[in-house]
């Protein structure tokens, strides 16, 4: 356990080295919410977002999820760099078991996402309280945080798996770009699912429906705004996503660092 804590501590120290990036990203997320979503609120058809009170409130949980996703994804970039520069050899020389190292890295990625997302989640809670008068119960809050944690760990695992799949930085960045933007824009973060069904081909609708970002955003919306309907499959989706990518990343990490 102590070894895992050391790994976590190291990754958190690295994360806060990017404090300028963090501030920049936070300001971008807040600008998306308080400028972009405010303007779109006046432009969006009322029938599309009336169940959520307004587009602004519809978007608020979404921005929390995108911020969480972006921060949890950062660990992959670091691991790709470590492999290319062979820092992983140094890591192997540490008195830490391979599985502890791998588990610590995946967990660190997830926890960093949670830490970064916290101010945005608080902002979301505040705006839903002010404009919709809703305050989630402690149990509901626990479910939201747990769901966010699952997304964060799954995203961390996904980004590590992606980072380990190639030693070429260009290929990694390209793959990351595709995954990143498909998951971002093919989700219910920016628009409800029925709209995606109207516009996009079936393949994109399936991605959007089972996309963990969609499940996380809709789950948070249900507990904060009462819509869309909560389905247990959302939680199952997140659990499978987190478990699958966390295990895959751990397995790949343990294999790759030994090469």
């Amino acid at each position: 356990m102590k070894a895992i804590l050391y790994v976590l501590e190291r990754d958190f120290r690295y994360f806060f080295r990017y404090r300028w990036w963090i501030v920049g990203m936070l300001s971008m997320s807040l600008a998306d919410l308080f400028i972009m979503a405010v303007v779109y609120t006046g432009m969006v058809k009322q029938e599309i977002t009336e169940q959520y009170v307004s587009y602004f409130l519809f978007f608020a949980p979404g921005i929390t999820i995108t911020a969480l996703f972006a921060a949890a994804f950062m660990i992959g970039r670091e691991i790709n760099m470590e492999i290319r520069r062979e820092i992983s050899h140094y890591m192997l020389s540490l008195p830490v078991k391979r599985w502890e190292l791998a588990f610590g890295r995946v967990l660190a990625g997830g926890l960093r996402g949670m830490a970064y997302m916290t101010p945005l989640l608080l902002t979301t809670l505040l705006v839903t309280f002010v404009w919709a008068g809703n305050v989630p119960s402690p149990l509901q809050m626990l479910i939201i945080v747990l769901a966010l944690f699952l997304i964060s760990v799954g995203t961390s695992g996904l980004s590590i798996t992606l980072a380990l799949s190639t030693t070429s930085f260009e290929k990694y960045v390209t793959a990351r770009g595709v995954v990143y933007y498909v998951l971002f824009f093919c989700s219910t973060v920016f628009y409800p699912l029925n709209l995606i069904q109207d516009v996009m081909p079936q393949a994109f609708v399936i991605i959007a429906r089972y996309n963990p970002l969609s499940c996380g955003a809709d789950l948070a919306r249900f507990f904060l705004l009462g819509h869309p309907t909560f389905e247990p499959v959302m939680f199952l989706d997140l659990a499978v996503f987190a478990l699958f990518f966390a295990l895959l990343a751990m397995f790949a990490y343990m294999k790759i660092v030994q090469k």
Partner: peptide, 28 residues
């Protein structure tokens, strides 16, 4: 800046083909 240029190009395509098309249907 090869990788940044690739990222920007993917971003552009996603913005146009996904966000642009869907939001187009969402507005009054």
């Amino acid at each position: 800046y090869k990788f940044l240029l690739i990222m920007r190009a993917i971003w552009f395509l996603a913005q146009i083909a996904l966000f642009g098309l869907i939001v187009n249907r969402m507005l009054k």
